[in-house]
Nucleic acid binder design. Structure first.
Lengths: 209, 209
DNA sequence: ACGCAAACCCACCCGCCGGCGGATGTGCCA
DNA sequence: TGGCACATCCGCCGGCGGGTGGGTTTGCGT
């Protein structure tokens, strides 16, 4: 095949500057073209279903609808959709969530131009692609335990400076129970302290300020 | 004056994608042109002194040399330099540091294209410009107290899950002294707890994970 | 149906955190 | 040179945090 149609791409990011950068990068290439843009998760879903692009570049942190949720929603109605996650952070949690949602590649925004373009081509050809740095991150977090919904609820209140007694009344349980949840979390996160538990959870993206 | 030279601009950001976006945005305008790029603070300083652009767009979070430090270094050798800070976050600390360093404008990366271009023109004409959202942030933080170097040192160890006794030995002081520092910080930050002290400091950008 | 793991719940004991009062040293300005 | 503000330093005491050991329910696999 000597002449094929260009790869049709959808760009989704809430920062106008970043969108402009991606569009500029892509449109310079003759074998790629941007067919649509979106600035939040809802738009992303709508635009995807409307244009059916070959590849979608999406940021995870977006208003209206979270990037990972949007990806899941897309792949529910278009199982073959090829999505590349492009984000600023390398939180374990974000990576896992987006890959579970069905993303084909995970790139950081500080990636070089060529790496990004290569990723687009690779994903378009049906391959999946995770950079080595991310892959090791992922491998590390395999053994990492997961917190239950209740535990996260407790931890969020801890981060807010609430005492065990306050948390207990807020959640309609006993102070002893709160301590128990906290204790298991200290074990899971390998933290020596409620404070360190919070900072570790923040590092891993389990918690947001 | 009907025809003037285009505004000469320097773009500094460690993300290639963002640089591409800014370049694309600016070069589309006939009255502006990008004369140089930099991907870290050191390059920024070198490129600025080499090209002497009319306006510099710089990201704060950069390797090698912090954006604010680079700005300070630039303005030391070129007092008239006009710098626009362009960042992802709206930490009180970052805002204040960069403005103290001599930045003429502070914009967030989620700003609209037109706002950004308007800011460039405004700064080039000698005006300074802070968006209302940032201005209120700044106003709020005026009354906010500042932590001493020693206090920050203690707080960083607290965030690491160290106990008061451990911190004491690490800093060659008594446990009582550590508690004292902590106590004054709780007052300054209006925190009820060492944990909340850490999260508040993180929110304000006084501390990094 | 059984075993089993995991989530959620609880009570008791000891040690550490945080509040309080107070001491010393340093820089600044009248 | 006194006075003031602030950073740094210290000890005592009550109350909260975290470890330990254990109980109940839900869901899952065989």
């Amino acid at each position: 095949m000597q002449k094929t149609d260009p790869i049709r791409i959808l760009v989704a990011d809430d920062h106008p500057v970043v969108r402009a950068g991606l569009v500029a990068l892509v449109d310079r290439r003759p074998d790629m073209t941007v067919v649509a843009e979106a600035s939040n998760g809802q738009e992303l879903l709508d635009q995807f279903l409307l244009h059916r692009p070959d590849v979608a570049l999406v940021d995870l942190r977006m208003p209206e609808m979270d990037g990972a949720d949007a990806i899941a929603a897309i792949r529910e109605r278009a199982p073959g959709a090829r999505v590349i996650v492009l984000t600023t952070y390398d939180d374990d949690e974000d990576i896992q969530r987006s890959l579970r949602a069905g993303a084909k590649a995970y790139m950081l925004k500080d990636a070089a131009r060529d790496d990004l373009l290569a990723a687009i081509k690779a994903v378009h050809e049906g391959r999946t692609l995770i950079p080595p740095a991310i892959a090791t991150k992922l491998a590390e977090s395999i053994g990492a335990p997961t917190l239950t919904a209740r535990e996260l609820e407790v931890l969020a209140l801890v981060a807010d400076g609430k005492s065990n007694r306050e948390i207990a009344t807020l959640l309609f349980i006993t102070e002893g129970t709160v301590k128990s949840h906290l204790s298991t979390m200290l074990g899971k996160l390998d933290a020596s302290d409620r404070t360190q538990a919070v900072t570790i959870a923040l590092k891993r993206g389990l918690l947001r300020l």
